[in-house]
Every structure is written in structure tokens, then in C-alpha cells.
Design a binder for these strands. Structure first.
Length: 675
DNA sequence: GATAAAGGGCTTTTT
DNA sequence: GCCCTTTATC
């Protein structure tokens, strides 16, 4: 188990009690250190699994950690917590629901729901949404929740500018959530923090429950998460925090690098171990990475090194336009595919923003290269899926009015927007819930057409009929199948004039959803897996339950999603001013001076991108870029100029791809791979 | 309330 | 350029 660990790695694994900070450079084996450390605690120190808490940044990372732990310990995982901060928060909320304002079956409102709520508050206050966009408002709410700052201390605080201040906005929004027995994503951290803070007996319960704590990607922890974690711990603070300040890329979400930089101040007895040997990349790639990041002055100086002395130089391609860039990448990958030395899922196209993926998808499809776009199209965001889930959500939580509004006329029940609006207005005026209005629709003073009345009665009957069934244990998949059949969405989509391709795609998605539900229901692991658990599960499992999608396909994703992953060959695309660094990070609110903090974070993103590559790195930049239908001149990213030229081969013609033989020659490093 | 034409915004990054 | 929302007309 300890074979091949270098001495600082070993030191981290064998560290006993007390706080420990592992400053782990990119590719320095930090996951191995964490998992080996946990495995040692379980197998050799007699620590019960239930005493260990490991928080990761994504569900993907959590799944990988569990897998590695199973292999290392040779045991079934029982009782150990491995998951994201958000899933930990959810667990604690559910376990202590009687101490909160929530009731069993509470909903987690998605980003889309949040927007709808804010739009409704806009209407209530009769404000102009153009003057104060919904997104901006939600942004401020999230910032307030995550940084723990009161509203009026946030930058850009608007006091009474629109007749009401942030504070009253916020209260109204929270009221909406409370009325719907709902929380938003940030509440999954905020409410448990409050719970632990306000209730000594709950706090003590958890402090005695866990003894060993591990926090991955610690540089991206925000103050709220850190406080939450601290409330779960007590002396001797057995926290093993692992992170790399050079890879801090979530400042915009309230993450504060000072939490990792000031670790010693928070925990004076902490041991600090630095891992600087990189096992992932060639020295050339690391030299490029070191050069890229050394332009940031606000960092702890450190230098990654690799035992893999050889390495191909980086390749820089300046494309005439976005399309040529995509053609270049697709043709290079086609060559790799022909050479067959590298599995396609070891090839990644990394980009700053999601919208960039489209051009690459087109060209990859043209060459029939299989690819997978990570995260972009979220399965659970599709219309048909959200419609069906709205039925489930409403049956789980009858106060979830947003879901009821969504399903009222889906499928078509002759209840138009105007009628629905009138019913909602009536409900508001009478201080009733929309569902209460539906219950007594026969005596409702709102004038309805006979068809609309029949529609409401039909919906009411449908909900009542399925609701009791769906709550019966083991009945979730079966009931939902029947419900979906009853809804006959296929006929509805045909009526809407959907073409056959889209129709088939939707029906397939619906089947996939139902299959997923059956799967969830049968994989209980001894725990209850009913409707409540399912809805919570899909709310916090966002984009990564599609494992078979990653096999032998080119991986496309944003730089943020790429953190923690590695690939044989990396294409880092769109290296232009305005893309990376992104234009939003280049402009400040008042004037045109650049914000160095934001710019440094962009540079760290660049660094994260470079360090994903094990053997080959391609960088590309477009001279013109098509944006909103029109072409713009674009300038190469300043980050490219910060790289040493002698480590790069540059091509700036619209040119031919390299021949197959060249590509074969480039790929010879692959077999010596130790990963 | 259904259909078709016109208009406007979209493009940070995610749990 | 595309897609969703708003507006005109029946």
C-alpha cells in the first residue's frame, strides 16, 4: 500500500493526530495521499469507518475516492462519509429537520426556479427587470450567503435605489422559499452552519460522531464552508487539508485563498507538508506551467519538477478564425485516432466557457470522432425531464408551487397563461395556496371556461390518484412509469409540432429517466430510497452520473471542470484576450482599469489547463472570432506571451495538419506512462 | 387562446 | 446565428 510513496507523501500518510496541511502541486499524487491515509486509518489504526469524514469538491471526485478506497482497504465502505460539502449539508439538515423551519420532503430549488422566483418579486414590486437583472440579484444573494457578509457590506450594494434595498429583496426571496418548504443551493451550507452554531447539543453530537476529517481542493473553500467544517470539529483538530494555492479558481464563488494561506494562523500546531514532485507530466510541460504561473506575484513560490526529463515541446497554433481552430483540433485528433496509440478518452479539449464547444462539436462530428461534452447540457435541465420531475416534486411537496405551475398545463389542459395568472392572483389575494384553489375549483370566483375547469379537475384527480402510490416503499419506478404513460407526452409533443428527431430524443430521455429511477430504487445499500431521497439525490448530483459516456470519447469541458483530471493530450483552445483572460475579468465596474485579482485567477485557470497534460500540449488562438453572428478581430492572450519560446513550436498559417508519421513520432511517450 | 412574425438577448466559470 | 419571448392578427 505504501510502495512508491516519496518521503513527503509518506509523512502525510503517517501523520497521526492534529491539523495537517498538504500543499500539493498539480499532479503530485494528492489523491493517492488522501486515500492511502484513510486506508491506513481504517486498516491499521483501528479507526471505525464511521469516524471519518472526507469532503471533496465534486461528486465525481467523491466517486473516484470511494472507488480507490474500496481497492486500497479491500473492504466494503460502510458508514464513512465521502461527499461534497453540499451533500454533507443536506444530510445534516435531514437528520435534524425538527430543529429547522423545514418539513420532510423539502425541495431544493434549482437555478431556473430561483430566477422564476426573482422574476415574480420583480412583478410584485413592479420593477423594470432590465434595470436590475434577475441574475444580478441572485448573484448578490449567493455572494452574501457564501461570504457571510451582510447585504449592505457587499460591493455594489444598492440602497433604496429601486425603492427597496437589498435587505428587503432578500427577505422577500427567503419568504418565497420558506412558503414552498424549500431551500436553494447555498442554503445547503448556510442552514446547517446555523443549525450547528445555534444548537449546542446538535453541534456536540456531530463533534463526537466524527474524529478524522479530510478536505480536498482546500484552496477553493469559501468562508461559509470553512466555518461549517470547523463547527463539526473539536480538539485535537484532526483535519487533513489538501490543496494548491496556484489552482485556486473559485474566487468568484466566494472561495478565499487566505483560508489555505493562513492555515497556520488558524491552527498554530499545524504540520505543513509540500509535495512538489510531479508524477504526471513531462518536464517540458511543467516548465511551461511554471513559466505561466510565475507571472502571478501573489503566490507562495514553488517549483514543480518531474522525473520525466524528456518531452515534446508545446505546439501553438494561430488560427484564422474559430472554424479553422476547430478544424485544426479535429484533424490532429483524427491523426491520433489513426495512430491508435492513445485512447480517445485520454484526449481533452479544454476551454474557458461552455459556448466555445459548439465549433469543436461540429468539426469532430464531421470527422466522425466520438466525443463527450462534460457538464454542458445537463440531463436534468431538459424540458421533458423537468416537466416529469415537477410532477414528482409536487407530489413530494404540495407547497412547491413552482412545480405545480409548471405542470398545470403540461400536457395541455386548456388552462392558458391568462387563466393561470388569474388563479394565482386570486390565491395571493386570498392568502391561499394555488393547490387549495384547485381543490375548491368548483366554487372559485375566477371565471373559467368549461374546458379549463375540466382541465383543473383532471389534474387534481391525477395527482390524488398517483400521490399515495408513489409514496409507498418500492413503488417509485412503477408508479412513475404509469404516470408518464397516463400523461401521454408523446401525443403532446406531436401536437406541438416537434419534428421526429427531437421527438425521439425526448422520448429516449424520458425512458432514461425512468430507468435511472428504477436503478436508484434498487441500489439502496440498506438506506431508504424513496421519492424524497431521489429528488434530493438528483438535485445535488448535477452532471456526472453518466460514466459510460466517458469511454473512448474525446473529452470536452471547461477549465473549471477539468481541475483534478489528467489527459495524455490536451488542447487548450481560445487563448485570446477576452476569452482567457475572460473579458469580464478585465473590466471593473467603474472604469476600465484591470482588476489584478481577477486577472490572476484567469492566469491560474491557464495554469490548471496546462498541468492537465501528461505528454502533449496544444495551445490555440483565433485571429478572428465569431460572436453573436458577426466576426470580430481578436488578440492573442497575453498569457501566451508569458511562455518561453524555446519550449514551443508555433504555426500561424491556416495550414495543413501534420502527417500521420509526425503524429506517430509525437506519441511515443505514451507507453512509458506510469498512471 | 392559437398561430405566425418580429424582436432582443445571448457568452463566464459550478455545487 | 439561434432561440426564446413578446406582439399582431385571427
Amino acid at each position: 500500500m505504501y510502495e512508491g510513496l516519496n518521503s513527503p507523501q509518506r509523512e502525510a500518510v503517517f501523520h497521526d493526530d492534529g491539523p495537517l496541511l498538504v500543499l500539493a502541486g498539480a499532479g503530485s499524487g494528492k489523491t493517492r495521499v488522501i486515500t492511502t491515509r484513510i486506508a491506513r486509518l481504517i486498516n491499521e489504526c483501528g479507526v471505525a469507518q464511521s469516524k471519518i469524514l472526507a469532503v471533496t469538491f465534486t461528486n465525481k471526485a467523491a466517486a473516484e475516492m470511494r472507488e480507490r478506497l474500496r481497492n486500497l482497504t479491500g473492504k466494503k465502505l460502510r458508514g464513512i462519509f465521502v461527499g461534497t460539502f453540499h451533500s454533507l449539508g443536506l444530510k445534516i439538515l435531514k437528520e435534524n429537520i425538527e430543529a429547522t423551519q423545514l418539513r420532510t420532503g423539502f425541495s431544493i430549488q434549482s437555478a431556473e426556479d430561483q430566477l422564476a422566483i426573482v422574476a415574480e418579486i420583480h412583478r410584485e414590486y413592479k420593477l423594470d427587470p432590465d434595470a436590475l437583472p434577475e441574475k444580478l440579484i441572485l448573484w448578490k444573494f449567493s455572494e452574501a450567503k457564501n461570504t457571510g457578509l451582510p447585504m449592505h457590506m457587499l460591493p455594489g450594494y444598492l440602497d433604496e435605489t429601486y425603492g427597496i434595498g437589498w435587505g428587503s429583496w432578500f427577505e422577500r426571496y427567503q419568504e418565497f422559499l420558506t412558503n414552498m418548504n424549500s431551500v436553494d443551493f447555498d442554503d445547503l451550507l448556510l442552514l446547517p452552519r446555523e443549525l450547528l452554531n445555534d444548537h449546542a447539543e446538535i453541534r456536540e453530537k456531530y463533534q463526537n460522531h466524527w474524529n478524522y476529517y479530510l478536505a480536498d481542493e482546500f484552496q477553493d473553500t469559501n468562508p461559509l464552508q470553512f466555518e461549517f467544517l470547523k463547527l463539526l470539529m473539536k480538539e485535537p483538530w484532526n483535519l487533513c487539508a489538501v490543496g494548491d494555492d496556484d489552482q485556486a479558481i473559485y474566487g468568484w464563488r466566494g472561495a478565499d485563498v487566505r483560508i489555505i494561506l493562513d492555515f497556520k494562523k488558524k491552527f498554530p500546531t499545524a504540520k505543513i507538508i509540500a509535495l512538489e514532485q510531479n508524477y504526471r507530466s513531462t518536464q517540458v510541460i511543467l516548465d511551461l506551467a511554471n513559466a505561466a504561473i510565475s507571472a502571478n506575484l501573489d503566490r507562495h513560490p514553488k517549483k514543480l519538477w518531474s522525473a520525466l526529463k524528456e518531452g515534446e515541446p508545446g505546439f501553438v497554433y494561430y488560427a484564422e478564425n474559430t472554424e479553422r481552430e476547430a478544424v485544426f483540433v479535429a484533424e490532429q485528433i483524427h491523426g491520433i485516432q489513426l495512430a491508435a496509440k492513445v485512447p480517445l478518452n485520454e484526449v481533452a479539449i479544454l476551454m474557458r466557457t461552455n459556448f466555445q464547444s459548439r465549433a469543436f462539436e461540429e468539426q469532430l462530428r464531421a470527422l466522425q470522432i466520438p466525443y463527450h461534452v462534460n457538464g454542458a447540457y445537463q440531463f436534468y435541465d431538459r424540458k421533458e425531464i423537468r416537466d416529469i420531475l415537477a410532477y414528482l416534486r409536487f407530489m413530494a411537496n404540495e407547497t412547491d408551487e413552482r412545480s405545480l405551475i409548471r405542470i398545470t398545463n403540461v400536457p395541455h389542459r386548456n388552462i392558458g397563461d391568462t387563466t393561470l395568472k388569474k388563479l394565482i392572483e386570486y390565491a395571493r389575494a386570498e392568502d391561499l395556496r394555488l393547490w387549495d384553489v384547485f381543490q375548491d375549483i368548483e366554487t372559485c370566483p375566477v371565471k373559467l371556461t368549461a374546458a379549463a375547469l375540466a382541465g383543473v379537475m383532471n389534474l387534481r384527480e391525477l395527482i390524488v390518484r398517483y400521490k399515495s402510490d408513489i409514496h409507498r416503499p418500492g413503488n417509485l419506478g412503477k408508479t412513475l412509469t404509469a404516470l408518464v404513460q397516463d400523461l401521454n407526452l408523446e401525443a403532446e409533443y406531436i401536437r406541438e409540432g416537434l419534428d421526429e428527431i427531437k421527438l425521439n430524443a425526448r422520448m429516449m430521455n424520458i425512458r432514461e429517466l425512468i430507468q435511472g429511477i428504477y436503478h436508484f430504487e434498487s441500489n439502496t445499500d440498506g438506506e431508504n430510497h424513496g421519492i424524497y431521497e431521489y429528488l434530493h439525490f438528483i438535485s445535488i448530483m448535477t452532471n456526472d452520473n453518466t460514466e459510460d459516456n466517458t469511454s473512448d470519447k474525446v473529452q470536452m469541458m471547461t477549465l473549471h471542470l477539468a481541475k483534478g483530471l489528467e489527459f495524455h493530450t490536451v488542447f487548450l483552445v481560445g487563448l485570446e484576450e477576452g476569452i482567457l483572460p475572460h473579458k469580464r475579468s478585465l473590466e471593473t465596474e467603474e472604469d476600465n482599469t484591470e482588476d489584478p485579482t481577477a486577472l490572476n485567477e484567469e492566469r491560474r485557470l491557464f495554469y490548471v489547463g496546462i498541468t492537465r497534460a501528461k505528454r502533449r500540449l496544444f495551445l490555440s488562438s483565433c485571429l478572428t472570432r465569431r460572436s453573436f453572428g458577426t466576426e470580430f478581430e481578436s488578440e492573442p492572450s497575453r498569457f501566451l506571451a508569458e511562455l518561453p519560446e524555446d519550449l514551443l513550436i508555433t504555426e500561424s498559417v491556416s495550414g495543413q495538419p501534420e502527417s500521420e508519421n509526425d503524429i506517430l513520432a509525437l506519441l511515443t511517450g505514451f507507453n512509458s506512462d506510469s498512471d
